[in-house]
Structures are given as structure tokens and as C-alpha cells.
Amino acid sequence: MLWLVATAALFALAANQPQRAWSPPPQAEVVLGDAHYRLDAAQVEWLQAFSRLHFSEGREAARALLEAELGSGLDAVFAGVRERLPEFADWYYSLGGEYSRLGMAALAQLNLAEGEFIARKAATMLFPAEDWEAALAGLDAHMLATLQGHQQRVRAGWLAEVGERLAPYRVPAPLGAASDAARAEPLRLDGFIAQWVAEEGEAFRGRVQLSAAAGGSAAAGTVLWRRAAARATAASGRVVAARGASRTAGRMGAYATGGLAACAATGPAAAGCALLAGAVAWVATDWALLRIEEARSRDELLAALDAGLAQLQAQMFDEVLAAYDAVAFEQEALAGGAIEREFRPAQAGR
């Protein structure tokens, strides 16, 4: 009876009691290309920290690279602008230039001040729209290509380093059968990184642009002229603003009176002669004054323009780098969040 009961109990237990399973410490399945790896929580944590550090260093290196490329690129672009400075100074100290400015001053009711006219002229002469925008677009394209090339190198370096470090933990790929249905989705590093790098490239493509920083040739001309004028005025007070006051319309009467005295002998044509003589005298005086002024202030104007160009170049340089820093900061935060999201399930062993 005892035996019967014991046998029946053992039968029942053997039929219904499953084997106690051992759950090993959680491990994450990591996929890199065709290679599969098994990592424990500490190794996933290392991978996460390494990835953060690697891409952060990559961004810093990209900034240094961008700084160098941007510096040399802007030097080349502004060297072209500097070559055109004497031409602008020639116009500025020419009679045509002088009378254009006076004419524009007379049209003040149309809100065309002298300075804005000169700024437009400076934009036209120093920053010819087509050349300027083409040069900036070329530099933009070069910087983007440099950034993308750098990102590819950073990614390749990361893949090589991770592949090498994870080699001891490589396992064969699991069977893609129904038996794997219960297995959680692995952490696919290459897909995640490719998407991340592509998104980062797009973010930089849209926002780190010289053409955006410069704001077009007209804006560049305006900024340059304002800075040059402010600098020259502050230096001597005579280059730009002072000259107009020295030649008033009252001078016309004095020249006409002088001409009338000279043409008294011409009889009935004396008035016309006087007007012509007055005009010639005025132009001649203006020319002489311009020559004197050019002799006194041409170098100063050129220096002010050169300094303004240097300021504009530095401003563009700073703005592009600031834009890069802003995007890089956002990307670092986004990448940090993305790494956190992707790696957290793996750390938990999925």
C-alpha cells in the first residue's frame, strides 16, 4: 500500500512537475553588421560610455577641422574683396562718385541717405552678388563635405574600435526561426549609428552656412560701409560725414558772381557765359578739393574698409562657429538621449 501510494505520487510529480530552470545573468544581444555579440550589463555600459565619448570627441575634432577650413576659406574669399578696395576708393574720390552722392542726398525725400547709397555701391563693387554668393556657396559646400567626410571617418573609427573590442564576445547568429520569436529585438548598433550620423549631417547641412551668416552681398556691403564709416569718423571725423558740409549750394552763387565779372565783356551772352564759367570753376574746385581730400584720407579710407572687412570676416567666422556649436550642442543632447534610449533595454537585459 505504501509502495502504491509512493509510486502514484512519484508518477504524478514526474508528469506535472517541470524541471527548475536556471536564469543566467541578463545578457544583451548586440548586432554590428553581420556579427552578433553577447554582452552583459557592464559591457553594455562600457559600450554606451565609449560611444558617447567617441562621438563627443569626434564633434570636437570636427569643430577644429571646421575652424581651420573656415578660416582659410574666408581668407581666400575676403582676399578677393580686398583686391577690389582700390577700385572702390577710385570711385569714391572721383567726380562721378561725388556727384552721385550729392544727387542721392538731394533725393533724401525718397529716404535714400548718402550712407545707404554708398553702402549699396560698396556692395555692388566689393561684393558683386554673383561672385560673392558663388564663393560663399562653394565654401559652404566645401565645409559640408569636410564635415561629412569627418563624420564618416569618426563612424568608421567607431565601428572598427567596437568591432575589435567586442570580438571576444562574438557569437553565431541565432536561427531566424520561430524559436527566436520569444527573443527580444537585439541592439543593432550599425543601423542606429547610421541613422544618428545621417540625422546629424542633415542638422548641420541646414544650419551651419556661411551664406546665411553673411546675409547676401547687399547686407555685407551695408555692414562693411557702416563699420568703415564709423571707424573713419571716429578716427578723423573727416572722411565721410564732414565733406558734404563744406560744399553748400551757396558756393554756386559765389562762383556765378565771379563768372559774371569775368564775362562782362561778352555783352548779351554774359549771363550764359557766367553760368558756364561758374560751373567750370565749381567742378574744377570740386576736383581740386577731391584730390586734396584723396591725398589726405584715401589711405585712411582704405584702412577703415580693410578693418571693416576684417571685422566682417571675423563676424562671419564667429557666427558660423556659433551656429556649429549650437547645432553640435543640440546634437550632443539628442545623441545622448538616443544612446540612452537604445542602450537602456540592452542594459536591462531586454
Binding site: A21, P24, P172, P174
Partner: peptide, 12 residues
Amino acid sequence: ERAVWHLVDQEQ
């Protein structure tokens, strides 16, 4: 390799 790993991996 994958066949053997498939069975080996189940033994804990």
C-alpha cells in the same frame, strides 16, 4: 556553427 550554437545556447 549556428546549428551547434542554437542548441548550446539553450543549456543553462
